[in-house]
Simulated assay, not measured.
Amino acid sequence: MEKRTNHMEYLPDMEQIDSDIKDKVIEAMNAYEPDKYTENDVLQALEHDTKTIEDFKALLSPAALPFLEEIAQQAQAETRKHFGNSINMFTPLYISNYCENYCVYCGFNCHNKIHRAKLNYEEIEKEMQAIAKTGLQEVLLLTGESKKMSDVEYIGEACKIARKYFKVVGLEVYPMNSDEYSYIQKCGADYVTVFQETYNSDKYETLHLAGHKRVFPYRLETQERALMGGMRGVGFAALLGLSDFRKDAFATGIHAYLIQRKYPHAEIAFSCPRLRPIINNDKINPKDVHEPQLLQVICAYRLFMPFASITISTRECQRFRDNIVQIAATKISAGVDVGIGGHSDGEKKGDEQFEISDGRNVKEVYDALCKNGMQPVMSDYIYV
């Protein structure tokens, strides 16, 4: 068998920053024992107006599940206090699905025999025109993680095109160095989201067998490099179900908390993805993460980080999404296509990353929000 690179060693082209956040996150996660928390710990946590790290641990523990109703009500009150009834709407646009990573759970992985494609600038513009026609003013640009096929310049050009049509441009692409983020930010990107997938480095090693993504510490420091490069906001997520989801959710929250304390100006966002079925793989299913557990995680994030934005993706079904935006989520995707192309009239050029669960278009999601007494917001950011 080929010798795999050490997943804890940076490659030569990877920037190493002087930060202790990574070590603090891992140390805190390793010390967290969800099963030791009691009903009493949960009730105490619910009594505190400002939740401590201990409270966050209790709210994520199995002992908190019987109190889900009370936790959800408190999360809802917290959400209303800071966000009112407003829910931000956006759509993801996949511009390339070439990938150099071998992640065993992902449909884009380099060994998966799928149809690969990359949009040229003209096609990107057509897709964006089609999305803008729906009324959306925020777009999230995604690529597979291949620097060769989607280099920094290509992503920068995509951001420049996006800036012509949208008020907010987000990125979910491969991790970069801070100087590259600085360039991308000048091209028009506002925020960067990176899924750590799992914060358990041993488990991480068994899931990421090749490619840049195999290097655990470089990925974990991405949000900090993005902020060093001038990004306005950063998003955090673990792919719930890959490892112990309670410890992963805890690590995600602590990571965001420490970044917010070090960079108080940064906008903080959470995504809460669960594993979804992918092309050519029926073996990996979410471990123990059912809807009550997902609700628990989302509410715990809200109570621990009251000002954070929380996104609910189309990995979840319509019913769950319509409910969670009334409790704790503040951002919802609509009119989603996770293949390459597919928004404009042309046919889809490349295969999807995973199967989506909620296929509603922008108007359908918009109308559902209104019907439930929520206020859809297309953009809460204006450039002057």
Rank of each mutant, 00 (worst) to 15 (best):
Phe83Glu: 09
Ala28Met: 01
Asn97Gln: 03
Glu54Leu: 11
Ala77Phe: 08
Lys113Gly: 04
Asn120Phe: 11
Asp41Ser: 08
Pro34Trp: 11
Ala58Val: 05
Ala132Val: 01
Phe83Cys: 12
Gln16Val: 15
Leu65His: 04
Asn97Met: 03
Ile17Pro: 05
Lys22Asp: 15
Asp13Gly: 13
Ser86Phe: 14
Ile17Ala: 01
Gly84Asp: 09
Asn30Phe: 06
Val139Ile: 08
Ala77Trp: 04
Phe67Met: 08
Glu100Gly: 12
Ala72Cys: 07
Lys51Leu: 15
Glu127Pro: 06
Val104Thr: 05
Met29Asn: 02
Gln137Asp: 09
Tyr94Phe: 00
Thr134Ile: 04
Pro12Ile: 01
Arg116Cys: 07
Glu78Lys: 05
Ala45Met: 10
Asp55Phe: 11
Cys103Lys: 00
Val139Lys: 00
Pro92Leu: 00
Leu68Pro: 07
Asn120Gly: 02
Asp20Glu: 14
Asp41His: 12
Asp18Gln: 05
Asn30Ile: 15
Asp35Met: 10
Pro34Ala: 10
Lys113Ala: 12
Leu11Phe: 13
Asp13Lys: 07
Phe56Glu: 14
Asn120Asp: 08
Ile17Ser: 01
Val104Glu: 10
Phe67His: 11
Glu125Phe: 05
Lys118Met: 11
Lys81Leu: 12
Tyr105Asp: 04
Gly84Leu: 04
Leu59Cys: 10
Met89Pro: 00
Ile124Pro: 04
Pro66Met: 12
Glu125Ile: 13
Asn40Lys: 13
Thr91Cys: 09
Tyr94Met: 08
Thr38Glu: 11
Thr91Met: 09
Gly107Ala: 03
Lys113Pro: 00
Gln76Ser: 14
Asn112Asp: 04
His111Pro: 05
Phe90Pro: 04
Glu33Gly: 02
Glu78Ala: 09
Val139Trp: 11
Glu69Ser: 15
Thr38Tyr: 09
Ala75Cys: 01
Leu43Gly: 01
Glu33Asp: 10
Ile124Tyr: 00
Arg80Gln: 15
Asp20Cys: 08
Asp23His: 12
Tyr94Gln: 00
Ile53Trp: 03
Val25Ala: 00
Ala75Arg: 03
Leu43His: 13
Gly135Ser: 01
Glu70Tyr: 12
Leu93Ala: 00
Glu15Gln: 11
Gln73Leu: 15
Glu54Lys: 14
Met14Tyr: 00
Ala64His: 07
Pro62Asp: 03
Lys126Gln: 05
Met29Asp: 09
His111Ile: 06
Glu33His: 09
Ile17Cys: 03
Leu46Trp: 08
Gln74Met: 13
Lys113Tyr: 01
Cys99Thr: 03
Leu46Asn: 12
Gln137Val: 06
Thr79Leu: 10
His48Trp: 06
Met89Ser: 05
Asn88Gln: 12
Glu47His: 02
Phe83Arg: 11
Ala77Asn: 13
Glu125His: 13
Gln16Ala: 05
Tyr10Trp: 07
Lys57Gly: 10
Asp49Thr: 13
Phe90Tyr: 14
His115Ser: 04
Met128Arg: 02
Asn109Gln: 15
Gly135Lys: 10
Thr38Cys: 04
Leu68His: 02
Thr52Trp: 09
Lys118Asp: 10
Glu122Phe: 01
Ile87Asp: 09
Leu46Gly: 06
Pro92Lys: 08
Leu68Thr: 07
Ile124Gln: 10
Glu47Val: 07
